[in-house]
Simulated scan of single mutants.
Amino acid sequence: MRLLITDPLAVVADHEDIQSLRAEDESGCFGILSGHVDLLTVLTVSVVSWRHADGRLGCCAVRRGVLSVRGGTEIAIATREARLGDDPETLEQVVLSRFEAEAEAERSGRVAALRLHTQAVRRIVEALRGDGSRTGVE
């Protein structure tokens, strides 16, 4: 099988000799072998690992992403960020913790922006109603 992993800036991995692949989505871990039915799923922050036809192992930490299987012979992963590595445990300890921290910071930023947006809309509605006497922030 062919495996192609890309992030917005580069082709991270492109292998023609993949025998099997292991990945993780919201439902849990799953495996892909040659002849797998077509599949489209959203990956979690996780380590994707694979075995080459000669028995070598490969792995890559992904910061979420979309995995597709086509024709049972092509696996493509498009992700925001990917880091190749030799040891899945090291990737899991070092890279995944950083990916998860960055994802949490982004979530916190989105929540803060949504709160500011909501407050601005409330102030506009109050001003349009003529109820603009309130000056405090909720």
Rank of each mutant, 00 (worst) to 15 (best):
H117L: 01
L33R: 13
L39R: 07
A13I: 09
E138Y: 09
E106D: 06
D87N: 12
Q93P: 01
C29W: 08
L9I: 00
S20H: 10
G132N: 13
V37W: 10
L116A: 07
A76S: 13
R122H: 06
L40C: 13
L128N: 09
V95Y: 02
R2M: 03
T6A: 01
S68E: 14
A10N: 12
A82K: 11
V95Q: 02
H15R: 13
T118F: 06
V125W: 02
V37F: 11
G109Q: 00
G65L: 14
L114W: 03
T41N: 02
R134W: 01
T41W: 13
T44R: 13
G55S: 11
E26R: 14
E26A: 12
R98F: 00
L40I: 15
Q19Y: 15
G136H: 06
S108D: 06
T135E: 09
V94K: 03
L9D: 11
D87T: 07
H36Y: 14
A10D: 06
V42L: 10
E92I: 00
D54E: 13
S46L: 05
W50Y: 15
D87P: 04
H52I: 02
G132M: 04
L57W: 14
E26V: 10
G85V: 01
A78P: 00
E16Y: 07
D14G: 04
L128F: 03
R83W: 08
V121R: 02
